Amino acid sequence: MRFMLDENVPMSAKRYLLSTDYEVEFIRDLIPEGSVDPLVAFVAEDHKAVLVSHDGDFQKIAPRIPDGQKTRFKKLSRIWLRCNEYQTADRLKKAMSLIEAEFNIAEHNRDARMQIWIGNTYIRTER
């Protein structure tokens, strides 16, 4: 599994994900900081990476069920961090077994996307 971290994800999250032996990089290492969300989504999808972000705008540009015929980002997997930023690494650690299981399920489905929401007190997935 490969993770692409949005610019609002703290370094502690990157350190944790690197400790799991997955590939991890910040989007800012590939494109300029402040790039528009559709470009961020495109780069993550192009790199076959799970986009990890505190930004809820990706829900609008890459929904699980598109509005009408809008089918952009058909292969973009996302983790929307809805927890406090200082809790990010700890919440990812607690969710990792679910993330791995959901990624495995998505990989073997026709719709190969994974969408997970991680809040302060909940973890939610959508299939």
Rank of each mutant, 00 (worst) to 15 (best):
I61C: 12
A49C: 08
G56E: 07
S53K: 14
L18Q: 11
G56S: 08
A62F: 05
P66F: 06
E45G: 03
R82L: 13
N84V: 12
R64V: 15
F42Q: 03
L30P: 02
Q59M: 08
D67S: 07
G68R: 05
D55G: 10
Y16M: 07
H54I: 06
D57C: 10
V40M: 01
H47W: 04
K70L: 10
L18P: 00
G56C: 06
L30N: 12
K70Y: 11
I65Y: 03
V50T: 10
D29F: 07
I61T: 06
S53T: 15
R82D: 04
R28S: 15
S53V: 07
P38I: 01
V43R: 00
L39Q: 03
T20Y: 04
D67E: 12
S19N: 02
N84Q: 10
R78M: 14
L76T: 01
V52K: 05
D57S: 14
L39F: 01
V36S: 01
F26H: 10
S53I: 12
Y16E: 02
N84D: 13
L81N: 04
R82C: 11
I65F: 04
L39Y: 02
R82G: 15
K60C: 09
V40A: 00
I27R: 03
T20G: 03
A41I: 06
Y16K: 05
A49T: 05
K70N: 12
R64K: 12
I27E: 01
Y86S: 15
A44D: 00
I61V: 15
W80P: 04
H47M: 09
W80K: 15
I79Y: 04
D46S: 12
P66C: 12
D46C: 07
I31H: 04
R15C: 01
H47P: 00
I27Q: 02
H47A: 07
P63F: 06
Y86C: 14
I27M: 09
R78H: 01
L51N: 03
S53M: 09
K60S: 14
T71Y: 00
K48G: 02
K74R: 12
Y16G: 10
F58I: 14
L76R: 05
S35Y: 01
I79P: 03
K60A: 14
R72N: 11
S53P: 08
S35E: 03
V36M: 00
T71N: 09
P63H: 12
F58L: 15
L51T: 08
S53N: 10
I61P: 09
H54P: 02
H47L: 09
W80R: 14
H54W: 03
K74G: 11
K70P: 02
P38H: 01
L18N: 05
R15V: 11
D29A: 07
Y86K: 15
K14N: 00
D46A: 04
L17H: 06
A62R: 09
F58R: 07
K48I: 05
L76W: 04
R64N: 11
L51H: 07
F73M: 14
A49R: 10
W80I: 15
L81C: 12
T20K: 13
